[in-house]
Amino acid sequence: MEITDETMNHLAELSNFSLDSSEKQALKQDLASILRYISKLDELDTTKVEPTYQVFEMENVWRADDIFPQDADREALLALAPESLEHQIKVPKVL
């Protein structure tokens, strides 16, 4: 599987990165060698095998619809943001 410049641009967009051309070239090489390695899986026959997405023994448990107090209040959570104003997170202009 060859990684083209077009694929790199698409992945950078999906990942929300703005990469300069030297970083993009370096990452392109890295990704190509990683993909070469993980393509080893092609050797393995997985027909008729069910996929596993998690290893937790999940079963549905109903609980009472009670409200539990949270660890952090609104002000503490707002304080995590780089900027806030009047009890809201401040962001650059969207429209």
Binding site: T7, L11, A12, L14, S15, N16, F17, S18, L19, E23, A26, L27, D30, L31, I34, L35, I38, V91, P92, K93, V94
Partner: peptide, 27 residues
Amino acid sequence: DIASVFSQTRSEGFMRENKRRIMIGNF
């Protein structure tokens, strides 16, 4: 603007190895 705040923050804030993994994951 909002789009470049996302992408510039992520580009500056993550290490090379973080970027590799995020891009492979999205691939």
